[in-house]
């Protein structure tokens, strides 16, 4: 980020993009009067580069790239405390969700680890219809080059019958493939 950011009036493109994000999130960012209640109650704000309140402020000022590039949106755990407490009814958790998806669409992801974990997870669902924990962790560790992460937990999980080395498969796997393809298609409209 540059030391000085010039803030000017929103361009037509920016305005359209913010409107689109608001529609997807089902919320209105201009309702926010910056009281900070969301950020005081946020259990992960201690680790964020911009607090939830600041993320909304960035959007209000039209600094969309800064908001999409914030690490905060990937640290948010979607615990919904902010949305529950907002005195103005801003659905901040849904906005965070929308920002993550927009960042993904633009290939502009500040925390690749979370995005890779999500990808690994959904790949197993697409393939088998169920999530397959051992496969996800293996793929995640390989793709993030953390080969021995949580390795000490793998065997005890299997010993307890809590993780299977093989995926659980549903019968309607072709339905799954169709759902994934159609969701992608319907999202483009």
């Amino acid at each position: 980020m540059e030391a000085v950011t010039r803030i000017g009036p929103l361009t037509e493109d920016d305005r359209r993009l913010i409107e689109k994000l608001e529609k997807e999130a089902g919320t209105d960012i201009n309702l926010c009067y910056q009281c900070g209640k969301c950020s005081a109650g946020c259990p992960v704000s201690f680790a964020m580069d911009y607090t939830p309140r600041q993320v909304i402020r960035l959007l209000q000022l039209g600094l969309i790239d800064e908001a999409l590039g914030a690490e905060s949106i990937w640290i948010c755990a979607t615990c919904e405390t902010c949305s529950e407490r907002c005195p103005r009814g801003v659905d901040i958790a849904s906005l965070m969700d929308t920002l993550r998806r927009e960042a993904l669409r633009r290939g502009k992801v500040a925390d690749k680890k979370v995005a890779l974990f999500n990808k690994a997870f959904l790949n197993t669902v697409k393939k088998y219809g169920r999530s397959y924990e051992a496969g996800i962790l293996l793929y995640h560790n390989l793709s993030t080059r953390q080969f021995f992460k949580d390795a000490e937990l793998g065997l005890p999980m299997m010993k307890r019958g809590k993780a299977s080395p093989f995926p659980e498969k549903i019968k309607g796997r072709d339905e799954m493939a169709k759902i994934f393809a159609r969701a992608l298609e319907a999202g483009r409209e």
Binding site: R101, V125, G129, F180
Partner: peptide
């Protein structure tokens, strides 16, 4: 019968329609 995964957090972090369809 033959239920599928709900998509969990990975779903709603990635694609809104998919996260509702699953």
């Amino acid at each position: 019968d033959d239920w599928n995964c709900c998509g969990a957090t990975a779903g709603h972090n990635t694609d809104k329609l998919l996260s509702l369809a699953l």
